[in-house]
Amino acid sequence: MSLLSTKAFSFLKNAVTSPYIRALSVTSKLNIKELREYKEGNKLIIEGVSLPSPRSELLVRAEKIPDLVPTKDSENSLCYLCKLDLDVKHTDVLILSQFVRSDGCMLPRRITGLCRMQQKKVGRMVTMAQKAGLLINLTPSFCKKDPKKRYGYKKFNTYYDEKTIFWKRIPNQNDRFKR
């Protein structure tokens, strides 16, 4: 009985404190990192192999940085990206490519583990980087792999302003040609 109660307690604690909401699940976890397919005679064998993540060694967390002084906003948030207090731009391809599948699609929030605001912000910046042709190797296979070969206005260079991400309505640009 005591064992059951401790199990239940740890389970609930996990569900509350874990940054991921995934802790509550009815079925058992699969723990799959890679799917392997191979043929053995007549049989086709599909195997799920659990592998260590290649990223965990290089992982940067705010708790591990001793010199980092938390700001007011970053202290209160639970999100790891908010805590780091980084000024990410749409041209920071090395950061944005971590939140992206191999076909350039943004990963959902249950996988990225970001807060709502950051998920939206990163998602928009990934779109900006894609449109600017900076993540051209992370695109579906049917995509033209050269941004200059895209159709119409898309073949020309475009840059974006990150301020526009959370604007409700983008105001009319004052006409620079008018005097």
């Binding site: 799959i32 890679e34 799920g48 990223r55 940067v60 980084l86 971590q98």
Partner: peptide, 12 residues
Amino acid sequence: FPKVMDYPSDYV
């Protein structure tokens, strides 16, 4: 390059 995001353990 230092990584910010890590995959969850059950991610394919």
